[in-house]
C-alpha cells in the first residue's frame, strides 16, 4: 500500500453465485498483498447472485484504483465502495462461554445485543449481534477473563443508508 492514511475501506460486491468466485476475488487481493480484514458472503434474493462485503484498510487512491480492478474481474457484476460514515454495519458472533461468562458478557456495553441459545452443564452458547466494534470488545473482554471457550464471527455485513 502506498502512502496516505490507512482508513477503513468497505467494498460491496455483487457476484455470480458459482464455484471459484471467492477464489478469483481473493486472488486479486493476494496479488497485491492486501490483507482482507473481514469477508461475508451470502446469496441474495436471486439464487444465481451473491453479495460479498469485504473490509480492509488502505488509502483512498489505492481503494479507488482497486475498485476498478475488482470490477474488471469477470465474475464480479457490480462493485460499490460504501462510505463508512453513511453505512450501517452489523456482525454476528456465536460464543461458547464457561462459568461466569454470560454475566461478564452482559456487562459489556456497546452497540449490540446478546442472547442465550442454549445452556447445558456449566457451558452456555450465546449469540451477539452488533457493530463490529461491539463484537470485538466483547471478544476481547471475555478472552482476557478466560471465560470464552470458543468464538465464531461472521464478518461484517453492511448496507449504505438511503437518506442523504
Amino acid at each position: 500500500m502506498s502512502g496516505g492514511a490507512a482508513g477503513e475501506i468497505i467494498y460491496s460486491l455483487v457476484v455470480e453465485n458459482k464455484p471459484g468466485v471467492l477464489f478469483r476475488v481473493a486472488s486479486q487481493f493476494r496479488r497485491r498483498n492486501f490483507n482482507i480484514e473481514s469477508v461475508a458472503v451470502g446469496v441474495t434474493e436471486r439464487p444465481d447472485t451473491s453479495k460479498m462485503i469485504i473490509t480492509m484498510r488502505g488509502d483512498e487512491q489505492m481503494a479507488e484504483d482497486f475498485a476498478r480492478v475488482l470490477s474488471r474481474t469477470i465474475d464480479v457484476i457490480e462493485v460499490r465502495r460504501l462510505d463508512p460514515g453513511r453505512t450501517v454495519r452489523r456482525e454476528l458472533a456465536l460464543l461458547r462461554l464457561g462459568p461466569g461468562g454470560l454475566e461478564l458478557a452482559r456487562s459489556v456495553g456497546g452497540d449490540g445485543e446478546l442472547a442465550v441459545i442454549r445452556e447445558s452443564g456449566g457451558s452456555t452458547i450465546a449469540y451477539a449481534v452488533g457493530s463490529p466494534e461491539y463484537i470485538s470488545s466483547l471478544v476481547e473482554v471475555l478472552g482476557r477473563s478466560k471465560v470464552l471457550e470458543e468464538v465464531t464471527r461472521t464478518g461484517t455485513v453492511a448496507l449504505e443508508v438511503n437518506d442523504s
Binding site: G20, F23, R24, S27, R31, I74
Partner: peptide
C-alpha cells in the same frame, strides 16, 4: 489447471 490458469488468463 483452473487454479493455475486463473492468474494468467481473462478467465
Amino acid at each position: 489447471a483452473v487454479g493455475i490458469y486463473t492468474h494468467v488468463t481473462k478467465y
